[in-house]
């Protein structure tokens, strides 16, 4: 271990240079211990600056995520900006039911892509000791020191990506939408009526149950449209 070699070098140098009587042996031993000491100091520095004894290792980890948004009907990927430049964000989601987020670190970068399943793939590059010898030689200091981490967050098309600020604004808007104004009520009733009329035109012998189905479908469509409109509005802010 480097700690041992350094201590041996220093004490050995002290004992030979100070305690020994003048002569060849003193010179030789002082030189030997001096080299051990200087060598140890040099190696500590080399390990610290150039990661001597370590190599770059890349590990990939993929986890499935679920939305951290409160409403189950509207899955979201939330993010929060770090600084005002807009170039760095922290992404918030749930893993195994617990809410978590990507690390806010200079060395961590995040990308969001669309795909089939909601996952986060972390590709970490770190300095790791080449083998157990080096690991114990340097007292396992700074093992797994992070060099770079790239998180790729995949979300399906049904998810929306919003900042926490936008999500709050959306929640407000949706709450407001639950109490529609008179005009909005009239518009909705009109739209539902139109859907029923169109359905009757296509199928004049519609039963009452079928009619109820059409009304339900129309309502659902209206709700979806309203949500999408709210999302668009919130994103535009």
């Amino acid at each position: 271990m480097i700690i041992a070699t350094l201590i041996i070098g220093v004490i050995g140098l002290y004992l030979s240079f100070i305690m020994m009587k003048n002569g060849t042996w003193r010179v030789v031993l002082s030189a030997i211990f001096g080299v051990i000491m200087i060598g140890s100091l040099y190696l500590v520095n080399a390990n610290d600056r150039s990661h001597f004894g370590m190599e770059k290792v890349t590990t990939t980890k993929t986890v499935t995520i679920t939305s951290a948004s409160p409403s189950k009907a509207l899955p979201m990927l939330l993010h929060q900006d770090v600084g005002t430049s807009g170039k760095r964000q922290v992404y918030i989601y749930k893993v195994a039911g617990k809410t978590t987020h990507t690390k806010a670190d200079y060395l961590v970068s995040n990308h969001v892509v669309t795909g089939d399943k909601a996952t986060v793939k972390s590709v970490k590059t770190a300095w790791v000791y080449k083998n157990d010898f080096y690991k114990s030689f340097f007292a396992n200091q700074n093992n797994h020191k992070l060099i770079k981490q790239v998180n790729t967050i995949t979300i399906p098309k049904t998810w929306t990506s919003l900042s926490t600020k936008q999500a709050k604004a959306l929640a407000k808007r949706l709450k407001a939408a639950q109490n529609p104004t008179a005009t909005q009520k009239a518009q909705m009733t009109a739209a539902i009526q139109q859907a029923v009329v169109q359905a009757k035109m296509k199928n004049p012998s519609m039963t009452a149950a079928q009619q109820k189905q059409v009304i339900a479908q129309a309502k659902a469509k209206l709700q979806q449209a309203a949500i999408q409109q709210a999302i668009k509005a919130v994103k535009a802010e």
């Binding site: 000491m37 100091l41 610290d48 600056r49 007292a139 200091q141």
Partner: peptide, 22 residues
């Protein structure tokens, strides 16, 4: 002199253990 030299090359992650020792 010899033991101050490593400090002239110190990095942000230099282990405290080595700092104490040197």
């Amino acid at each position: 002199a010899a033991a101050t030299l490593p400090f002239a090359f110190i990095t942000a992650d230099t282990p405290s253990l080595f700092i104490t020792l040197i």
